[in-house]
Design a protein around this nucleic acid. Structure first.
Ligand SMILES: [Mn+2]
Ligand SMILES: [Mn+2]
Ligand SMILES: [Zn+2]
Ligand SMILES: [Zn+2]
Lengths: 142, 142
DNA sequence: ATACTTATGCAACTTTGTTGCATAAAAATT
DNA sequence: AATTTTTATGCAACAAAGTTGCATAAGTAT
């Protein structure tokens, strides 16, 4: 991890009015160094037993609340998380992109350049958010 | 539950080459009588302690395999399940509709008439399935 | 340096999901 | 209709995932 990234992590936390702690820095580093989305168990594996499982849960929840990460729905009982783009904030997310889950390697990735299409709901429904998860075979696995 | 439905449940199981058991019939009844998608814990609640939790897991897995139900991704650690339309089969699903999760009442519903839009993936990705989950406020809660 | 605020770790617990195996029930065969 | 074969269920025992309260530690503010 470069000094530049270390600095930006610090800034990110400060901008979200969060105190800068080892756990939070480490978890953000893991996100930045990973190319795919991470699930809860990844952190215990990737970071060793450095921090408690409860702390990981609370940290992820805090990051979600602050708009630092977003969650990706799954059908396999392990929610994935990925970093939001820099212009997301607490109640204003801008990362309306498609997510891709590879059936071969299992990784879930943000397709930043693939916008979620417009959805036309039946009358009477108010839409707040749209999640699109595509499954298939990724570039690397083909 | 009408006799007509009871009969169609029997037929459905037979068509899927599954033996007709109390658990399976009961779980299918619960699906048919519910307007929203069901999560695992619903069955224990709705059906009382009639059947073992392990049986519920295995039954849902079997129904998934046979194309009798489909799963709906979530970010809340409880996968939802809903009945497939009659023309779905083991390896050939036809229910490509949008799902809606109400933030007020918590129910997840199949919007049968709202098709999932076409998604254009970047070069190199093979698409097998698209899940669209919209969250917001449903008709009843507005 | 001290007071104040917030995050962490631990314990204890609940909920969710899995596996092996004996038994029960369903379907097929005679 | 009785018997064999196949398949599903229930139980126990366990593993993994997620939650809550509370004491302590670490981070921020004064
Ligand atoms: Mn994403
Ligand atoms: Mn559906
Ligand atoms: Zn892949
Ligand atoms: Zn509602």
């Amino acid at each position: 991890m470069s000094n530049k990234n270390k600095a930006s992590i610090t800034e990110l936390l400060r901008a979200s009015k969060l105190s800068i702690t080892d756990t939070r820095v480490k978890i953000l580093e893991l996100f930045m160094n990973s190319n795919g989305a991470l699930e809860h168990s990844s952190f215990e594996k990737l970071a060793g037993q450095t921090f408690d499982r409860v702390t990981v849960y609370r940290t992820l929840q805090t990051f979600l609340d602050k708009g630092i990460i977003h969650s990706i729905p799954t059908t396999d009982t392990s929610i994935r998380y990925a970093l939001c783009k820099s212009d997301c904030s607490e109640h204003d997310h801008h990362d309306h992109h498609v997510h891709f889950k590879c059936e071969e390697c299992g990784t879930t990735t943000c397709l930043e350049d693939t916008d979620v299409p417009e959805i036309h709901l039946p009358k009477g429904y108010a839409m707040h958010n749209v999640d699109v998860v595509v499954s298939g075979v990724c570039k690397q696995c083909k």
